[in-house]
Amino acid sequence: MFKIKKSRFLLMSLALLLTLIISACGDDSSDSSSDAGDQDSEQKSEVTLDSKMGEVTLPTDAERIIAPFHEDALLALGVTPVAKWAIGQSVQNYLEYELKDLPKIEWNLPLEQVLNQNPDLIILEHGIDSYEGSYEDYQKIAPTFVMKEETTNNWRKQIETFGKILEKEEKADEAINQYKEKVANAKETLSGAIGDETVAAIWATGNQFFVFEENRHSAEVLYSELGINSPELIKNLGEAQAQWNPLSLEKLSELKADHVFLLASEGEQGIDTLKNSDVWQSTPAAKNGNVYILNDPSNWTNKGLIASEKTIDDVLKALTK
């Protein structure tokens, strides 16, 4: 009788032990699953992209970002950089409504200035030789992405690329689609307002005058996107070159544009020069009172989503009175 009870006790003990082992295995499986989840989460916080310097792995949750001269693309994604591009006291004025409180960082990215901002992501243009430090220098400070030339020169690709880096691809698509809609609406409005009339843009700085070629900065918005006609003088200039040469006052007399946007800071000498020039006053735009002075040329001398939107707003305000 005792042996039978002892056997039952042993069987019950073995069953209990087996249950504990199975339970423990289940807990290990849960822990493993949890660890795997954590690993997946860590993997999702990084992205590997092709860059000018080859494949590079970047954090997708960066909060302190430096992208000198390309703050436009960051802001289009709802991201504020930690510092803003500057040449001395000059900044991109058209972005100041969002960046006015940020510290400036010099255009050639001095290493000490970069270190002082404690960035966790640095985004550079393809022309890295223009920076004070080398790619390796910046990599020691924070993960660094160097754009390819086609990305540097195309703000849409910038927004798409920055969207991938920061896991904001939907926001990138939304921003670009909204811009397309803005262009389409503006194009229709302007077609009804000015028809086939021609438009030109001139930047006056000091007593020099620079005429925008069809693909120079935001003039591309005028001609390629809004479908506005350019005068013959601008057609003859061809594509914009790296070196932007001024035109003489005599040459400007050949500008048979129906409308002219004159970009000149308040008090710029060039404004008075044109007002007092019989040669200039004989041009169609001047004779008909269709010269529009814009005191902030910064969005016109840049390429970006926000720059382009502001250029469209300038054009609509002037030409649809």
Results as ranks from 00 to 15, higher is better:
residue 152 T to L: 02
residue 192 G to Y: 04
residue 119 P to Y: 04
residue 178 Q to D: 15
residue 131 Y to V: 11
residue 134 S to Y: 09
residue 201 A to H: 00
residue 240 A to I: 08
residue 195 G to E: 10
residue 171 K to I: 15
residue 223 Y to V: 01
residue 152 T to A: 04
residue 132 E to M: 12
residue 172 A to M: 03
residue 176 I to R: 07
residue 118 N to L: 02
residue 221 V to C: 01
residue 131 Y to Q: 07
residue 179 Y to V: 04
residue 209 F to N: 09
residue 147 M to Y: 10
residue 246 P to L: 06
residue 183 V to N: 03
residue 208 Q to E: 14
residue 174 E to N: 14
residue 173 D to W: 08
residue 224 S to E: 15
residue 178 Q to F: 07
residue 122 I to E: 06
residue 243 Q to I: 11
residue 170 E to G: 13
residue 150 E to C: 06
residue 190 L to R: 06
residue 202 I to N: 00
residue 225 E to W: 03
residue 181 E to R: 07
residue 112 E to Q: 11
residue 174 E to V: 10
residue 217 H to V: 10
residue 154 N to W: 11
residue 129 D to M: 09
residue 128 I to N: 06
residue 208 Q to S: 15
residue 171 K to S: 10
residue 130 S to F: 12
residue 167 E to I: 04
residue 114 V to E: 02
residue 126 H to E: 13
residue 229 N to F: 00
residue 213 E to S: 14
residue 150 E to H: 13
residue 177 N to P: 06
residue 113 Q to E: 14
residue 124 L to V: 07
residue 214 E to R: 11
residue 135 Y to F: 15
residue 119 P to A: 06
residue 144 T to H: 09
residue 189 T to N: 08
residue 230 S to W: 00
residue 229 N to Q: 14
residue 165 I to E: 00
residue 179 Y to A: 01
residue 138 Y to E: 09
residue 181 E to F: 02
residue 220 E to V: 11
residue 218 S to V: 05
residue 136 E to F: 01
residue 141 I to T: 14
residue 155 W to G: 02
residue 247 L to W: 04
residue 191 S to V: 08
residue 150 E to T: 11
residue 117 Q to K: 07
residue 134 S to T: 15
residue 146 V to M: 01
residue 227 G to I: 07
residue 112 E to W: 06
residue 169 E to D: 14
residue 192 G to P: 05
residue 140 K to P: 05
residue 116 N to G: 10
residue 218 S to N: 14
residue 243 Q to Y: 08
residue 241 Q to D: 13
residue 222 L to T: 04
residue 187 K to F: 06
residue 154 N to T: 09
residue 155 W to K: 08
residue 137 D to G: 11
residue 236 N to Q: 15
residue 120 D to N: 06
residue 146 V to P: 02
residue 152 T to S: 13
residue 161 T to W: 04
residue 216 R to Y: 14
residue 159 I to T: 09
residue 118 N to P: 06
residue 222 L to K: 05
residue 166 L to V: 08
residue 210 F to P: 00
residue 235 K to V: 13
residue 176 I to D: 04
residue 213 E to W: 00
residue 209 F to V: 03
residue 245 N to H: 05
residue 122 I to Q: 05
residue 230 S to D: 05
residue 202 I to V: 14
residue 194 I to P: 04
residue 243 Q to F: 08
residue 140 K to Y: 10
residue 231 P to V: 04
residue 201 A to I: 10
residue 181 E to P: 03
residue 202 I to K: 01
residue 128 I to A: 10
residue 114 V to M: 01
residue 228 I to Q: 01
residue 229 N to G: 00
residue 236 N to M: 11
residue 132 E to G: 10
residue 170 E to R: 12
residue 195 G to V: 09
residue 131 Y to E: 04
residue 123 I to P: 00
residue 233 L to S: 00
residue 114 V to F: 02
residue 183 V to P: 03
residue 174 E to R: 15
residue 193 A to D: 07
residue 221 V to D: 05
